[in-house]
């Protein structure tokens, strides 16, 4: 489903963020990406979202080399995956419902279907009664649930979570992780970049570690530090 072969990313200032990275993720897998700050995790996310292009190497998602996409094809790549960020990235002036619905409006779903599916997803993340509130009226955990609802509303095959619990207290974090596990159990491939040692150590999922841009560890049932 997702494959990186010999992916290198060097920035114009000479720093090499990723160096000859090879990695393959099967459909339905749950993968933690760990590593110290500056190890290349953020760059990896940017490459997968096609915010950046690799300097060399190939990144294939569903058999398609995304490095070769033309600018107007990039939005369609992004629609095929859901993304969740540490800082939630919600529209501050839009209600919860509008934020979630937007992902479906973008793909021009019929309004009737949007209403039904948004209600369904808000129920799944436990925010049905907050559908008309603004992000600023919600707690951090609730905002991340909204972001998560938006990420999965189009039933993507791949969910990219970039430190989704980075801004949340441990208890709230577990709530989000449980949701991610639920989503993963329905067949969505999950790639979660994280610093949350406790979560990684408890779940014992596949762990990929980056160190100074190199992939140094890839364990099937790994823990945070190898």
């Amino acid at each position: 489903m997702l494959e990186l072969s010999n992916v290198t990313k060097a920035y114009p200032n000479g720093s090499v963020a990723l160096n000859q990275v090879n990695m393959s993720v099967e459909r339905g897998e749950f993968v933690f990406v760990v590593g110290a700050s500056g190890a290349g995790k953020t760059t990896l996310t940017k490459l997968l979202l096609r915010e950046e292009k690799p300097t060399s190497g190939k990144i294939t998602i569903n058999g398609k080399n995304i490095a070769k996409l033309r600018p107007h094809e990039v939005p369609y790549l992004r629609r095929s995956m859901g993304v969740v960020f540490q800082d939630f990235r919600l529209m501050p002036t839009w209600t919860v419902e509008e934020n979630v619905a937007f992902a479906m409006v973008v793909v021009e779903t019929a309004p009737r279907l949007i209403r039904r599916r948004v209600a369904e997803v808000l129920e799944l993340v436990g925010l049905t009664n907050k559908h008309a509130q603004l992000p600023s009226q919600l707690s951090g955990g609730e905002q991340q649930r909204v972001a998560l609802a938006r990420a999965i509303v189009n039933k993507p095959m791949l969910l990219l979570a970039d430190e989704p619990t980075g801004n949340l207290d441990p208890e709230t974090s577990w709530g989000i992780v449980k949701l991610l596990l639920d989503i993963n159990s329905t067949g969505t491939t999950m790639l979660m970049v994280t610093h949350a040692k406790q979560i990684v150590d408890t779940l014992r999922k596949r762990v990929v570690e980056l160190e100074s841009g190199c992939l140094t560890r890839d364990e099937r049932c790994g823990i945070y530090h190898g």
Binding site: P75, R89, V106
Partner: peptide
Amino acid sequence: EIGIMRYIGATN
């Protein structure tokens, strides 16, 4: 907001 729209896959 524009950045968020782009992440979600909105065309230009």
